[in-house]
Amino acid sequence: MPSLATSLVLGGARSGKSRHAERLVAASGCERVYVATAAPGDSEMADRIARHRAERGAGWLTIEEELDLAGALVREARPGRAVLVDCLTLWLSNLMVAGRDPEAASAELCGLLPGLPCPVVLVSNELGMGLVPETPLGRRFRDAQGRLNQAVAAAVPNVIFVAAGLPLTLKQAGEPGAGSFA
């Protein structure tokens, strides 16, 4: 069975990051758990969620969790499983809309990751490569996403950036700089 370490998979919208993350989890040979953070707020989003579920196919246990990601990981992470979280960007948006503290939630998540009994693959959008958002809310969100991505990248042994469907390893377990940072 191929070895899978906890990983962060970053990329832009429609970059192929989710598909790459799904392949990593599927190749592990472990029981596959998909933690979905999207909320079907309108019919287009509901259709998108249904399409993603159909594309994944059978063999995935899907858990929907919009806010309590740390709680979902505590409940679902166990030996013999590999958990995919898709995605941190929607989770952050959900937290901000709900008036939750994203810094506290991020710290809780990052503190939890190294001690989980199975690998977790977290998907997130890289928002810092585009234009500066026009609104204060947009700038707060972009900044919070950047801080979240940095914190998760520091807490996991593997970080992969995906562009045009092509993965680029930024950090790999066993290499200098890999692992957990305080």
Rank of each mutant, 00 (worst) to 15 (best):
P2I: 12
P2M: 15
A5P: 01
L8N: 13
V9W: 02
L10R: 05
L10W: 01
L10D: 02
R14P: 04
S18I: 06
E22L: 00
E22N: 11
A26H: 10
A26Y: 04
C30F: 13
R32Y: 00
R32T: 15
R32H: 09
V35H: 06
A36E: 04
P40F: 05
D42M: 07
D47C: 03
A50E: 10
R51H: 15
R56P: 07
G57D: 06
W60I: 02
I63F: 04
I63C: 10
D68F: 01
A70L: 05
L73S: 02
V74G: 00
V74A: 12
A77I: 04
R81F: 01
R81V: 02
A82T: 09
V85E: 01
D86Y: 00
C87R: 04
C87I: 02
L90H: 07
W91K: 03
L92P: 03
L95S: 06
D101E: 15
E103Q: 11
A107H: 12
L109M: 09
L113Y: 13
L113D: 12
G115L: 11
G115N: 09
P117E: 03
V120L: 07
V121L: 07
L122C: 12
V123E: 00
E126I: 04
G128C: 05
M129P: 00
E134W: 02
T135H: 10
F141K: 01
R142S: 13
A144D: 09
Q145V: 05
R147I: 03
L148W: 07
N149F: 00
Q150C: 06
A151L: 08
N158W: 03
F161K: 10
A163W: 12
G165K: 11
L166T: 14
L170R: 06
A173P: 00
A173T: 11
P176N: 14
G177I: 12
A178R: 05
A178E: 12
A178I: 13
